[in-house]
Design a protein around this nucleic acid. Structure first.
Lengths: 136, 136
DNA sequence: GAAGTGTACTACGCGTGATAGTACAGAAAG
DNA sequence: CTTTCTGTACTATCACGCGTAGTACACTTC
């Protein structure tokens, strides 16, 4: 019985992102930062649902998407486990998604009045723990 | 009759953002980059709707949001004009929004496998034209 | 068999996105 | 004043996503 990592997740109703995405993003970040190492078992669908006071279907949906993206592997009757890193997207698709992500981010930040240097520093601090970790 | 700037806008169905947001983001970027200077008249609701083959209500909604955010001023029977820069959000709200924007961006990028330096370079290139321009 | 896992359905309520149509108020030009 | 442009405010409809709820099934372990 591999211990299911506790997984500190926090949902916020002030966050405009839907619950499914908050859960997915949180787990994705935890995996990318190696906080959840490869092979680690994730909390059960029903368990995490109870922990977050959320419908089990919502958690299952988030897990399902993570599995489709290759972040986790599911084993019937056993549980969900952090998958080995792999690249599933074409270069064109990766480039396209990066473009949209940056464009969206720019639109979100452009009205806040922060200087470029400040934004860059914050982005660096946020990305450092989650990039260049899964290729090691 | 002040010439309504042509306003090069391109909607994409491949872009996950809804149309209203694509329009709003595009105009917001054009204003922030000074491509649309203060006082410039924007295309009419019906005109832009026809240009983009979109429902006039959709354009009106986008304009309405931009006006609420202080980007543009509307004058009944005259048209819409780029407003003078002003800050409408509290420091706490600005900081909160920056945090969410960065968190969302990180989640969008974490799976693409790009090195930190590459992402930062792209972000810098995208933000340089739109930040620190309206405070001049 | 029992208890735990993931998975697959259906159904309902709710909100948003987008389209369509109509209507009204202000401004400018004839 | 009439026409024509502008923005604005509705209402209605359709589609889709989000979230909850309940049920059911297949698999693994004890």
């Amino acid at each position: 019985m591999s211990k299911t990592t506790p997984l500190m997740l926090q949902l916020s109703s002030a966050d405009p992102r839907p619950i499914v995405r908050q859960i997915g993003d949180g787990i994705r970040r935890a995996i990318a930062s190696r906080e959840l190492p490869v092979g680690a078992q994730l909390p059960s669908v029903r368990g995490l649902a109870q922990q977050l006071t959320v419908n089990p279907n919502t958690v299952a949906k988030a897990y399902s998407e993570l599995a489709a993206e290759g972040w986790i592997d599911s084993r019937q009757g056993l549980g969900l486990f952090v998958a080995a890193p792999r690249q599933m997207l074409s270069d064109a698709e990766r480039s396209r998604r990066l473009g949209i992500a940056i464009d969206t981010f720019a639109a979100d930040v452009v009205g806040l009045g922060y200087p470029l240097s400040h934004v860059i520093d914050q982005v660096k601090a946020a990305l450092k723990p989650v990039l260049n970790k899964r290729t090691a």
